[in-house]
């Protein structure tokens, strides 16, 4: 039995876990190839033009898989602990996939509500009728669920930029490659939310408490944690992303208050690399100027202090 997983959305977080789990119950796992223009074009012809880029991409991946597989494995994330919801489109993508593929493929969609274990167990039972084997495969695959418990170090004298955005945008090379290349090309270290510990991401302090979208809360917390430690914050927002349109506004406010450059890159399928590179370069220049100004100020303070002592 061939089980297909689209290399998009939640795959960027749980991909390894799913591959291991499905292989463990004796399925042949087929993962779609990395996103490229052809895949995106395929997706565009299957969903409405107004939907956000990640959904268009996942539609392309699904279309690519259909015909090569017997079962499409596409978990539906409703909410994680603390009743934090996924965004409407993440919830609806399973229904879109069902409508897109029709009878051509069977869709297995574990419904994640809080915990991962039970829905995956049920989905496993749909594919393989041996409960012991499913349980074993799940337990073995579990170690691939990404756990964040280490706090990254922020040494002095290093140039850093926070690259914020949903993990399925940052994790997809097709989307984030130009941004990452430009930033690293200028000698900046990139900090993303994925390297931060869970305790930071799940924090419920301040405005984060009233954010009821799970990944949005993580983003906001990551922003709050990183904003003082980096030279600038660069945020990738897909055009038409509802949660980001709100939360990015609060981030922009906060960044302004703390005098940190904040760049919001809105992307869709028409976004050109040249435009992005130009904007990032302008943003980095701003960050450097701010740095220089800060140095100057502390320099002049030193001088004044020095004179004071000499007199």
């Amino acid at each position: 039995m061939k089980v297909g997983i689209p290399r998009a959305l939640l795959y960027h977080r749980y991909g390894r876990f799913w591959e291991e789990f499905l292989a463990g119950i004796g399925a042949e796992v087929v993962v779609s190839r990395r996103t490229d223009k052809v895949l995106l074009q395929k997706g565009l012809s299957h969903v409405s033009s107004e939907i956000c880029l990640p959904i268009k991409i996942v539609a392309g991946h699904i279309e690519e898989l259909v015909g090569k597989i017997d079962v499409l494995f596409l978990p539906r994330l409703l909410w994680l602990e603390d009743k934090l919801y996924a965004c409407p489109k993440m919830i609806g993508i399973v229904d879109i996939a069902r409508m897109m593929t029709g009878d051509r493929v069977r869709v297995v969609a574990p419904k994640i509500q809080g915990s991962l274990w039970l829905p995956h167990f049920r989905a496993g039972m749909e594919l393989c009728h041996d409960p012991m084997r499913v349980a074993r495969a799940l337990t073995r695959a579990r170690r691939h669920i990404p756990v964040h418990d280490r706090t990254p170090l922020f040494p002095d004298g290093e140039k850093r930029v926070a690259l914020l955005g949903h993990f399925y945008n940052i994790g997809d090379d097709f989307i984030s490659r130009p941004m990452v290349d430009t930033l690293t090309g200028h000698g900046y270290r990139i900090c993303t939310k994925d390297e931060l510990p869970e305790s930071v991401l799940r924090s419920r302090q301040g405005f984060a408490r009233s954010i009821r979208w799970v990944y949005e809360r993580e983003l906001y917390n990551a922003f709050r944690f990183l904003v003082d430690k980096v030279d600038g914050v660069c945020m990738i927002v897909s055009m038409g992303c509802g949660p980001d349109s709100l939360v990015a506004e609060f981030m922009r406010d906060e960044a302004q208050r703390r005098d940190r450059p904040f760049l919001q890159l809105v992307i869709d399928e028409h976004t050109g690399t040249a435009g992005i590179v130009t904007r990032i370069e302008a943003f980095l220049e701003l960050a450097e100027r701010r740095q220089a100004r800060a140095l100057q100020i502390s320099d002049s303070r030193l001088k004044i202090g020095g004179q004071g002592r000499a007199a």
Binding site: S48, E50, P88, K89, G92, D95, M99, G240
Partner: peptide, 16 residues
């Protein structure tokens, strides 16, 4: 409204 999230999902269903 333009960029409405739930209604965009509904749109796919209505097309079907």
């Amino acid at each position: 409204p333009f960029t409405c999230m739930p209604e965009n999902i509904a749109l796919e269903a209505l097309q079907k």
